[in-house]
Amino acid sequence: MKEKLQEIFSHHHGTRDALIPVLQDIQGEFGYLSPDAMDAAARFCRMSPVEVYGVATFYAQFKFDPVGRNIIMVCQGTACHVMGGARILEEVASQLQVEPGQTTTDGRFTLETVACIGACALAPAMFVNKDTHGRMKPEKVAEILNGTGN
């Protein structure tokens, strides 16, 4: 981990304004922010670790537990809501038996919600890793989940 963090740090200038990009890179590499990684980021950006924790927990993007191999994001934007996005979220949650923010016990899926991805014309929309699934219907959920890699 140390080497990978050093590699990430080498792309940034070690000041406070680099913190969020540094954390984003760390999460990009490890999938989440471990206490050790946050501590290292604090030293690099010359802040106290608790400030890093305060910043990281402020932003919805950051995760503090390892994530699943596949990320399911269900859009909760206005258009999606009006078009029945809540029902899609319910369906995914019940099929995976997790709450938003949680990871399935087998580590295959992490379920998340997103405030709006700007694909309002496709509402309701959900995302599996980088793939967009627009005009979702509850009955399409199972097929999409089954078609996703282990």
Binding site: D39, M47, S48, P49, V50, E51, Y53, G54, T57, F58
Partner: peptide
């Protein structure tokens, strides 16, 4: 001293030590 900060946001906000531990286990 950098021991405590506000964590999370909105009505979930709370005063925390690093990683949310007990004060006695903090710096």
């Amino acid at each position: 001293n950098g021991v405590i900060d506000i964590a999370a946001r909105g009505s979930d906000s709370f005063i925390t030590t690093f990683n949310g531990g007990l004060l006695n286990d903090s710096n």
